[in-house]
C-alpha cells in the first residue's frame, strides 16, 4: 500500500498530511481524506479553521503553564480556587484527569515532563524554576506531587523537593496503593507491599 499510486496529486498530499498524525497509517489516512471529500465545503472549512486556530492562538498560562485561551487559564483565574495549594503534574493530560475527579480545589503547576538524561531532558527543560519562584513569593502553603510513579517521576519529585526544602511549606505526594474496585489477587507485589506498609486507620476510609 505504501507504493500506491494516487489518481490525484492533491489527494496524495492530503493523505501524506493525515498520515503524519500519531496512530494514523496510510490506509486510514486515505479513508479520512476520502471522507473529507464527501463533506460540504463549509463543514471542511470549519474543521480546518479549528485546527489552525488551535495552533495559532493557544497560549500557555503564565501561572501554571497549562494550555489556555488567555494569558491566565480558567483554573488560575477562578476566584473559587485555593491559590495556596499547588499540585505539580507532568502534562496537561494529568490536569484533565485530576479535574475530572472534581475533588481538587487548588491550582496546578505543569512541568512539561520528567527529568530523564536518556531522553535528553534536564531540569532546565522543565518549568521547575518558575515553581520555585512561585513558592518564594510566599503565597503557597502546600505543594502536592502528582507525577507518574516511575523512577524518573520519583527522581523529579526528589529534585523539586530539595529545591523547595529551604522554604517552609508543606510538601505531600498522592497516595500509592491498590486501586478502588480492584481484586487484591490482581494487584502487583510492589503495589500491594507498599499498600501494607502505608496502611491507614480504618475510620479514614469511611
Amino acid at each position: 500500500m505504501n507504493n500506491s499510486r494516487y489518481p490525484s496529486r492533491l489527494l496524495e498530499s492530503a493523505v501524506n498530511e493525515f498520515a503524519r498524525l500519531p496512530g494514523i497509517g496510510r490506509k486510514t489516512a486515505l479513508r479520512l481524506a476520502l471522507f473529507v471529500l464527501k463533506q460540504e465545503v463549509d463543514d471542511v472549512t470549519r474543521f480546518t479553521s479549528a485546527i489552525r486556530e488551535l495552533r495559532e492562538e493557544i497560549q500557555h498560562c503564565k501561572v501554571c503553564y497549562n494550555i489556555s485561551d488567555s494569558e491566565i487559564c480558567e483554573i488560575c483565574a477562578s476566584p473559587k480556587r485555593d491559590r495556596s495549594l499547588v499540585c505539580v503534574v507532568e502534562s496537561i493530560r494529568d490536569v484533565m484527569a485530576i479535574e475530572n475527579t472534581q475533588q481538587y480545589t487548588g491550582i496546578y503547576h505543569v512541568l512539561g515532563g520528567v527529568i530523564s538524561p536518556m531522553d535528553g531532558i534536564g531540569p532546565d527543560d522543565l518549568t521547575i524554576e518558575p515553581l520555585v519562584e512561585k513558592v518564594k513569593s510566599g503565597e503557597v502553603k502546600e505543594v502536592i506531587f502528582a507525577l507518574s510513579t516511575t523512577m524518573e517521576g520519583d527522581t523529579t519529585n526528589f529534585f523539586i523537593y530539595r529545591k523547595l526544602a529551604p522554604h517552609s511549606i508543606e510538601m505531600t505526594t498522592i497516595a500509592r496503593g491498590v486501586s478502588i474496585g480492584d481484586e487484591l489477587e490482581y494487584a502487583d507485589e510492589v503495589t500491594l507491599g507498599r499498600s501494607l506498609i502505608n496502611r491507614m486507620p480504618f475510620e479514614k476510609t469511611l
Binding site: 530523564s116 538524561p117 536518556m118 531540569p123 520519583d154 526528589f158
Partner: peptide
Amino acid sequence: NQRNVLLKSARGNIKLIESQLDVWDEQ
C-alpha cells in the same frame, strides 16, 4: 544508566549537572 548518560552529557563541566547529580546519587 540515567546517571551515566548524565555524566557523559556534561562533557567534563561538573557545574552543569551538579544539582541533578545529587539527586541521582541519592536515588
